[in-house]
Design a protein around this nucleic acid. Structure first.
Lengths: 215, 215
DNA sequence: AGCCAATCTTGACACTGTCAAATTCCGATG
DNA sequence: CATCGGAATTTGACAGTGTCAAGATTGGCT
């Protein structure tokens, strides 16, 4: 009944709380601290390494304290994935707003950026596009919303590429968006998951992918 | 010292063991029973649903009995993945040996088969190509061997396609094999993991992928 | 000043994988 | 035929995990 499931609780009274020692009962902004600590844990040890108990230890709070801000572990992870998608969306739009480059050139850049991001933030990518979050009934509504948004961007971006003539005009934009994302995602996963073990020819793979997708 | 890590123990004396009641101390071929039961569990509930204790219960044996045949849970899963890759290899070679079809036609068929297999055996595909098995230091040597073999087949098959003129001849065969597999794997994962939620246009996606990969 | 509700903790439960040590039993050996 | 070694299996234990129900603590408002 009192579970707020991710909503910010009543702590939203603006009067700046007087400085509280780390050991006090009530914390400053526990929700944010939990998110930050979780992000750290993911970055260092991957999603698998996230444990609510270790998290609590790290933040200096009891095992179940997080349950007042997140319905369960899954919702916490979804929250972080959401954050990731927002940054993702930002960075992509930045690439395609760079008018100093030709459209086709931007698309090639996008492919390289995708791969670089996925490899440099492997654990975070794994969170955002991993099964744990998306498996039936797991994904939060807000996560689904932002992810859908990001995918719509990909569709727009594809349609534009077709109009600009560097993506095959004959294909349906939706399918083309699906398949091109599939290609990038597939390569990223094969590398991240350790199925492809040769990390020294990423650029060549990107080029090959670009050659296939563009024309 | 006495851990045999997946090798078949001394049970290899040929004299047909006299029929043993299911409840007896020594079982008939526990190793195989464990493998079979694990396969069942994967098919119904996915890799995540595999628990050594439930497995033991199911086979009618104590929690730790499996440890005499598999060093740990990971090795058991690798064994099953290996089995999967062998069947995988079989089915693919069967497709490409069908002389009643044109090479290009066979390749299109292969793409459709890939997708169909991945979706109809989602949990098994997830095992074979999932992170749990492949993550650093997890994959068994024999698993790596068969998987490498399967990938080499893909390279050969790609090179042949280039010679036969339905795959772009300009690209390096290895890269092309990597990227084409990436495309299929990516689409499969996006569907299996629940990121793509529309399962009613698989064929269109396959066609689009084929159009991009072939020429 | 005192209460209420938001916040956090304690206790408990049912799981998990895995190790070490004890048990059971088969089959070859004396 | 009895025995004994070692393989096959079990029991006990430990350190984890997520999560629920209840209790303890606290700050802000009336």
């Amino acid at each position: 009944m009192s579970r707020l499931a991710g909503k910010i609780p009543v702590m939203s009274q603006k009067p700046a709380r007087k400085e509280v020692a780390d050991k006090s009962y009530h914390h400053d902004d526990l929700r944010q601290k939990l998110i930050d600590a979780t992000r750290d844990m993911i970055r260092s040890g991957g999603v698998e390494a996230v444990s609510l108990r270790k998290l609590a230890d790290r933040v200096g709070v009891s095992r179940t304290a997080a349950y007042h801000y997140f319905r369960d572990k899954n919702v916490l992870l979804c929250t972080l994935a959401e954050e990731g998608f927002r940054q993702w969306q930002d960075q992509i739009s930045r690439i395609f707003q760079d008018d100093s480059r030709l459209p086709a050139e931007r698309y090639r850049l996008y492919i390289r950026w995708y791969m670089t991001y996925a490899l440099e933030n492997a654990e975070y990518y794994d969170l955002m596009f991993g099964r744990s979050i998306w498996k039936q009934k797991c994904a939060t509504e807000s996560l689904k919303a932002i992810a859908y948004d990001v995918f719509q961007d990909q569709v727009k971006l594809t349609r534009q590429g077709q109009k600009q003539g560097f993506l095959p005009a004959g294909e349906d934009s939706l399918r083309l968006a699906q398949v091109s994302w599939g290609t990038l995602h597939g390569l990223a996963r094969l590398l991240i998951d350790g199925i492809y073990t040769d990390n020294s020819h990423i650029d060549e793979m990107c080029d090959c992918a670009a050659n296939l997708l563009m024309r």
